[in-house]
Nucleic acid binder design. Structure first.
Length: 459
RNA sequence: UCCUCGGUAGCUCAGCUGGUAGAGCAGGUGACUGUUAAUCACCCUGUCGGCGGUUCGAAUCCGUCCCGGGGAGCCA
């Protein structure tokens, strides 16, 4: 019976005859037999196969197995007499499915730089670290759905191709066909476009999620998002995944609590279910990771307003490259100082100046701030950005005009305020930043299977 | 896009102020061994990122272009 290695190791049955299929991680020869470590991606741990010289293909094939070869092993599970593993598979048959020429196979039995691995995007999931990232990412993704589904949220598939720019969210990739290609920018009128008007890849599903929130109550969208920014950092991608809940009848306070609850839920989830992989990250990638994650689960997130943040930064007497003063947008150095030095835990900052935030955020009673929130975490900086949305038609229209946005392209959005408008809130979680936070991976290009950055999209 | 550091063997990197390229790992061969990134011995490996310049002589100095890392801006 063919089994996944994770299942075999989780509940070993001594004496069981079984089959495993996977890739050779290393081969060590002893006198009269060989040790072959086989991994199938189901877990970080591999299974040790004992291949005796009595196997029919021992000399011809088994002794020539090298890193990366694929094999189908049939054998009997037995207790291992040596340290390092509890059980091992004594092979009765080793079938080689695919060879991997050791002269040219790029992966070795050692740590490679992530920079090098990026150039072999198609082979890097076979490494311990990238395999672990993939498993954690998958578990987190599933967790996002269970978190919201368990709370009655309805998933909405917001469009990938859109004709409305979510203003302030960055540059859009243009979508067109060769015959329709033109110099026209998104938002301008055009006669011959495929969609009748210029279209682009979505930079956020928020505006469309708002549509469904104002019909179904609590909704969320979780999908790919695209930004045509020429930004080259360890925290940005041209294509990334975003989790965006949108909640009707919900103010900033409620929004904040859902966001904190969600982050804690997801961290708790991987601590419980990805322990083996997280232990690898804790040991080799980011020392102290497990303790840090446990703290996130145990502690209340700190919460201050933007105005308080500015005061704290001024009182810190710290010298910053960008001087602090009420009205400025908080810079990376400020955010990091707040969350890493002053609070040393996740920090929620709310009530930012209206002038530096997008038109859809709700203007507060003081008239100069909006009901916005950012969640900052140590090591990453901003991981969540959200707000209560402006539900008052007149105020929204005024804010659009102030921002220089032509309301005619947003009639559908304004309609939501004309007909049965309700207070509502939502936020966006950069999924890759969450994976970074949880795994401790320093570069965002390592936490998405196929990273897209300016000048880089190999397959 | 800006700042900064870098590009030398398949990988990781050394090569001081210019004198004609090296170590570990990987790979190959052999030995040894219930091994754990096994160990030991021997062997193989290079347009020193591209182009141009200075010089008797450039991996090394100068110019320029390309590519990458880190940081910044923007954001998630």
């Amino acid at each position: 019976m063919k089994k996944r290695i994770a299942n075999v190791l989780a509940a070993p049955q001594i004496g069981e005859q079984l089959q495993v299929a996977g890739w050779v991680r290393t081969r060590r020869d002893a006198s009269g037999f060989s040790f072959i470590e086989v991994g199938d991606g189901s877990s970080l741990a591999n299974i040790q196969v004992i291949a005796d010289q009595t196997l029919a293909n021992y000399g011809d094939e088994v002794k020539k197995l090298s890193v990366g070869c694929s094999v189908l092993v049939t054998g009997i599970l037995q207790e291992s007499p040596a340290k390092g593993q509890a059980v091992e598979l004594r092979a009765t048959e080793v079938q080689v499915l695919g060879w991997a020429d050791p002269e040219s196979y790029p992966l070795q039995k050692k740590q490679h730089s992530f920079e090098f691995l990026r150039n072999i995007t198609h082979l890097r999931p076979r490494t311990n670290a990238l395999g672990a990232v993939a498993r954690v990412r998958s578990r987190l993704s599933y967790g996002v759905h269970t978190f919201f589904q368990d709370r009655g949220f309805i998933q909405v598939h917001t469009p990938i191709i859109t004709t409305s720019d979510c203003e302030g969210a960055g540059e859009m990739f243009q979508v067109t066909t060769p015959s329709h290609a033109s110099e026209v920018k998104v938002g301008e009128e055009s006669g011959g476009e495929f969609f009748g008007r210029p279209a682009g890849l979505t930079v956020s599903g928020q505006l469309q999620a708002e549509v469904y929130a104002q019909a179904l109550g609590n909704v969320y969208t979780f999908g790919p998002t695209f930004r045509a920014e020429n930004s080259n950092t360890s925290r940005h991608l041209a294509e990334f995944w975003m989790v965006e809940p949108e909640m009707a009848f919900c103010d900033l306070e409620g929004n904040r609590h859902v966001a904190e609850e969600m982050l804690k839920y997801l961290v708790r989830l991987v601590l419980a279910e990805c322990a083996e992989d997280l232990a690898l990250f804790d040991r080799f990638i980011a020392k102290g990771l497990l303790a840090r994650l446990q703290q996130v689960v145990d502690q209340e997130f700190a919460h201050i307003t933007y105005t308080q943040a500015v005061e704290e930064l001024l009182q810190s007497k710290q010298s910053f490259t960008y001087p602090v003063q009420w009205g400025i947008d908080l810079q990376s150095e400020h955010e990091r100082y707040l969350t890493e030095t002053i609070y040393q835990r996740p920090l929620i900052v709310t009530d930012y100046p209206a002038a530096i935030k997008p038109f859809y955020m709700r203007v507060s009673e003081d008239g100069r701030t909006v009901a916005a929130m950012d969640i900052l975490v140590p090591g990453i900086g901003e991981i969540i950005g959200g707000s209560q949305r402006e539900e008052r038609y007149d105020v929204l229209l005024a804010r659009m005009q102030q921002a220089g946005i032509e309301p005619s392209g947003y009639e559908w959005y304004l309609d939501l305020r004309r007909y049965g408008t309700v207070p509502h809130s939502g936020f966006g979680l950069g999924f890759e930043r969450l994976v970074q936070f949880v795994t401790g991976m320093a570069n965002i290009r390592e936490v998405i299977p196929f990273p897209r950055t300016p000048g880089f999209a190999p397959c």
